[in-house]
Structures are given as C-alpha cells and as structure tokens.
C-alpha cells in the first residue's frame, strides 16, 4: 500500500504575528508539526505492514522542510515540499488545488490520502474534503479506526452523536479525528535512517499551476482585517482568603445563569 500523508507546519504556541494583509507571519516564529497531522501520520506508521510506503507532503516556505525532516524521523519513507513564493497566502481552496495537483503529478497511484482533522492555527479542517472533491474520490472524516480489508480498508468514523463503519475504497481521502497530547517520539534508529534521506522540493511551475490558480491571487476568500481579541469579560478580581466565601460566589454564579 502506498500512503500519502499531508502535513502542515504551524507556528509554535502563542507567538502570533500578523502581517499587514492579515495573514500570519510565519518567518522567525519557530514552526512545529501540527499535532493533528502528527497523530494521523502516527496512526499510519503504527499500522503499516512490510512493503508499505509512507510519503509525507507539505506546502509551505522552505523552512517547512524541518517538519518533513521530523516526519521522516518518526518513520516516513519519503518527503515532498511544495514550495513557491506564489503559493504564499493560499486559502483552503487554493491549498487544496495545489495539493491535488501535487498528488496527480507525483503520486497518482496513492492507495490512501491521509490528513489530520484540522490545524491548530487555521482551525478550518476544510482542505481534506476539498482535495477529495477535486480528485473525485470519497472522503472519510473523523476516522478513529482504520484497518485493511479486502482490496481496500474499513474505517470507523465518529460524528459525535453517531459512530459508523464504512468501506473505504483505494484512493480515498481519510482524515483522522484525534490528537495525542503527549506527542510522538522519534527513535534513535528513525533519526539515523532519516539523516540519509533527502526532501524533494516541487515548485508551482513543476505542478503546472498558473499564477492565478494559487496563493492570494487564486484564493476566493480574502482576509480583510484581523484583530486581537479584546477581553469583554467583566474581569472582577477578588482576593479571598476564606474558601467558603469563594465557594458561595461560585455557586451564586452557577445559580444565576
């Protein structure tokens, strides 16, 4: 089986910087592998059989190769970086278009396209299903379990109020739902193996994408403005030594809703 896992680099924790056009400033902010992507990659690596091939791909600036390096340390076999100045500022639609072009150009025989549920910086969770539509394949969201069966797979999906099992044909898009709060650790052998492997960089022209199909020019959504969230909380600070008084205040809040 050939797996393609799409991952994203996200700015580390609370270091939010905003560009003039409202996009996030990523240069200079330490980037980490999005935990949802890491979890999805981990699930595939845990279930891989001998002979399976796991390829990771990300779209981002040149420094995004760091997260690909980490993916290979965790156990991925090969890595592609889709990188081009013209891709900057892509919204989910333009991102999906570029990723679709990549898959069709480089790994058209992928048996499964794997995503995390969402990223922690964008929170949209839209790209997997836009890619699925562009490729014309089925999509499986909120997957909690995936196993091989017959020619394809069987997935268990958790919609919150409903859990269901579906047949997953080869070539489908699968998005895992979870995240591992502890993260994964790369083994020493994984690190040594990754050190010898290179990252293939692919640019816009190599994927046959026009200037107006990607990046800010190819994005139908436009961020007009971003602003920091100003607290609208009453923010009443009370120094209380007596726990009973505090408990009374809390129960008062609970009763007054």
């Amino acid at each position: 089986m050939r797996y393609v896992v799409a991952v994203k680099q996200v700015p580390d924790s609370g270091l939010v910087e905003v560009n003039g056009d409202g996009s996030l400033r990523r240069a200079g902010v330490p980037a980490v592998l999005n935990p949802y992507c890491e979890y999805a990659l981990g699930r595939i690596l845990d279930s891989r059989l001998p002979g399976d091939e796991v390829t990771v791909v990300t779209m981002g600036p040149p420094q995004a190769s760091a997260v690909l390096r980490r993916c290979m340390e965790l156990g991925a076999d090969s890595a592609y970086l889709v990188s081009d100045p013209a891709l900057a500022g892509s919204d989910t639609w333009a991102t999906a278009r570029a990723l679709t072009a990549f898959v069709q150009r480089h790994i058209p025989d992928a048996d499964l396209l794997v995503f995390g549920r969402q990223t922690v910086d964008g929170d949209t969770g839209q790209v997997p299903y836009e890619v699925a539509q562009l490729l014309g394949v089925q999509q499986f969201a909120y997957v909690t379990d995936l196993e091989s069966s017959g020619d394809g797979f069987t997935a268990v999906q958790d919609y919150g109020d409903m859990r269901r099992r579906c047949t997953v044909p080869r070539g489908s898009v699968v998005a895992f739902s979870g995240v591992d709060p502890r993260g994964r650790f790369a083994s020493v052998s994984g690190r040594l193996a990754a050190a010898g492997r290179g990252i293939v960089t692919v640019d816009r022209v190599a994927l046959g994408l026009g200037l107006y199909s990607v990046g800010t020019k190819g994005s139908p959504t436009v961020i007009e403005a971003t602003r920091r969230v100003e607290s609208t909380r009453r923010n009443r600070k009370v120094v209380i030594r007596d726990p009973a008084t505090a408990a009374g205040l809390i129960l008062g809040e609970a009763g007054a809703r």
Partner: peptide
Amino acid sequence: PAFGGNLMADIRCT
C-alpha cells in the same frame, strides 16, 4: 476566530 481564539478575522469571499 483564528489561531485558537486569540485573533478575530474579518473575511470576504470574492
């Protein structure tokens, strides 16, 4: 809300 609720973004669609 964006970036974990730390930012609010106003967005238009063209």
